[in-house]
Nucleic acid binder design. Structure first.
Length: 218
DNA sequence: AAAACGGGGGC
DNA sequence: GCCCCAGTTTT
């Protein structure tokens, strides 16, 4: 697959996207690009439905929107605020630890460096890249399960490891597509190029796709 | 009722 | 590599 193919594909996908619901990180980004709120929203969104994450964000941010005040909330308070999301106990603990670390080591600021972000508890490569791109508007590649699945399905990358997918995309994908790639592929993956039974007959880029791992299609 | 599903951490 | 973390949607 050549660069010109990717160019054509994202153009085709972009046309479809306007009719689809925006992913939660996009919604949060429109409401606030504050890196701390982006970070917390991304943490809450892990393995959790969009509308559930939105609910939890609303409840939590009504109590506190910065590391200092959020760090003063008790664990039960945090758990109650974010309760609807999956893994709420783990996430509540991680939020406390993150607030403490930001206060102690980063003067209450969220770092914009990828390696620094990765030292925060509960922050992996996907979350860290979201903070860099949405919170700071810097180039980054966020590989979630959709980006991973679709990149492999196309044959653009070939690996079972999402971290490896990120490396390959960094090497192959033209930098002007880095940030938007995730924005395009997430709604595309949620609505059309689904994990099971993708709607290949309606797909605008099916001619480019090698359908690796596709077992059925409608 | 069972499986799939939005990552990350600890070992 | 393997297992745990929790709630919702799909099959």
């Amino acid at each position: 697959m050549r660069d010109s193919d990717i160019h054509a594909m994202v153009r085709l996908i972009q046309k479809e996207i306007t009719q689809w619901k925006e992913p939660i990180v996009g919604v949060v980004a429109n409401q606030s690009r504050d890196p701390f709120q982006v970070l917390i929203a991304c943490l809450l969104s892990l393995r959790t439905q969009d509308h559930t994450t939105a609910q939890a964000c609303q409840r939590l941010f009504s109590l506190a929107t910065d590391p200092t005040s959020m760090g003063q909330l008790s664990l039960p308070q945090l758990e109650r605020a974010i309760y609807p999301v999956g893994f709420y106990r783990t996430k509540a603990k991680q939020i406390r630890l993150i607030c403490q670390k930001l206060i102690a080591e980063y003067n209450t600021d969220v770092p914009c460096d990828l390696e620094d972000l990765l030292t925060l508890p509960g922050v992996g490569r996907k979350t860290a890249n979201l903070v860099v791109t949405i919170g700071y508007g810097k180039p980054g590649i966020c590989v979630d399960i959709h980006v991973h699945r679709i990149s492999n399905r196309w044959g653009y990358v070939k690996t079972r490891n999402p971290d490896e997918t990120e490396k390959v995309l960094r090497a192959k994908l033209p930098p002007r597509y880095w940030i938007r790639f995730n924005d395009w592929l997430v709604p595309f993956g949620q609505n059309l190029c689904r994990p099971l039974s993708p709607h290949c007959s309606q797909c605008p880029v099916s001619e480019y796709c090698s359908r690796i791992g596709v077992t059925s299609s409608r």
